[in-house]
Design a protein around this nucleic acid. Structure first.
Lengths: 202, 202
DNA sequence: ACATCATTGTAGGCGCTGCCTACATTGAGG
DNA sequence: CCTCAATGTAGGCAGCGCCTACAATGATGT
């Protein structure tokens, strides 16, 4: 007998999350099993139940970590670039980079939830991420870098654009490298619109 | 004994798909069980196996139906409106309408697949939907209604925008009514860009 | 008309899962 | 040092997907 683990694991919750994250990345959310996680952590099959009410609670915790990470990488991009377009490219690159590195996690973060209580927390996380973006646009508006109008609506237009691209990448409907390579042009279209601009000779 | 069902169901495959669609809408993809579907159809628990190799095959079939429906509603919108912006609004309304009416199905259609064979069929379906949109933009380009450039890239910009909005609605991250109400403005931003246009006094 | 045979449904079993309950061990606080 | 909440264990339950062997059916060729 190993006598290694002193009955109490020490930090089972964190160990389960790390293990779950690895499984999520390598085999997808569907292949995630609480019993398997327990086995990997070397505890009994019921032990995870002490830290997560049920499987969905563990997935929700993973999703919350995802939002924190996404906020972090986006936050770093917010300060980038001399002008607005460069900053927007940096933000787009950050979001798409997240989608490329953690496609399964992104999918998990934006999977429809049906439970009211978990939806509340995750909804708040979405609002945080989106709120930061909205403030960025409101600031840019004050500097005259973007059009007037409800900043929340403008932020939504930008967010939908980026999220759409990221979601298409995560779902393998779009080749990641191709999307990243064309990111500059993509952001240009977002900022300048699809209609011809007479002044766009530059 | 009922003597009702003559051993052979008649059209079990279709019955399973209809039943599955209902379950998907009412209880979500996670609650979908082949055995439960068999029970609803009044057949043995192994009968579905004759029509769908496994559970994923049934989900793939549902997703394929989803693409067909989406193509249909988008196709109807392609002919709408006198000018390009109206047509674009009609398309956006169609896509968002689909997302509002069948959020779980949309999620299923864009769920990451790991199996090569099913990915092929579904990938082709995505290409069809996207291809139609690309042709529409190529035509609009010839009429000078939108900017020059690779039509595929321009179509991607528009598709990402719409898909992002639809995905946010489907995942409950965005209120559906709010999004639909602001659709005109949203499309306007897509066409005219986020940067100020001197000529946009109109 | 009838034998043939692929198609479609049945019956039962296997290992796995999530979740439940009762019990054991531990470490911290009164 | 005793108590007790927190944490891990052991076992059980029903449900699941998938598998195999078997039965009923209806189309096909002669």
């Amino acid at each position: 007998m190993p006598a290694s683990r002193p009955y109490h694991h020490g930090d089972l919750r964190a160990a389960l999350l790390r293990s779950a994250e690895r499984t999520l990345r390598e085999k997808g959310a569907g292949a995630l099993s609480l019993r398997e996680l327990a086995r990997e952590a070397g505890v009994s099959h019921a032990a995870p139940g002490r830290h997560f009410r049920d499987k969905q609670a563990l997935l929700d915790a993973l999703a919350m970590e995802g939002y924190e990470r996404l906020d972090r990488v986006l936050g770093e991009a917010y300060g980038a670039g001399p002008d607005f377009e460069r900053r927007m490219v940096a933000i787009a690159r950050a979001y798409l980079g997240f989608a490329v590195e953690h496609p399964e996690l992104l999918e998990l973060m934006f999977t429809r939830k049906h439970r009211p209580d978990s939806s509340a927390q995750l909804g708040a996380a979405v609002d945080r991420t989106f709120g930061a973006l909205t403030r960025l646009f409101a600031d840019a508006q004050e500097r005259g870098e973007i059009v007037a109008g409800d900043p929340e609506r403008i932020a939504l237009a930008a967010a939908a654009n980026l999220h759409g691209l990221a979601a298409l990448i995560a779902s393998c409907a779009l080749d990641a490298e191709e999307a990243v390579a064309g990111l500059d042009d993509h952001v240009h279209l977002l900022l300048h619109g699809l209609k011809p601009r007479p002044s766009d000779a530059a």
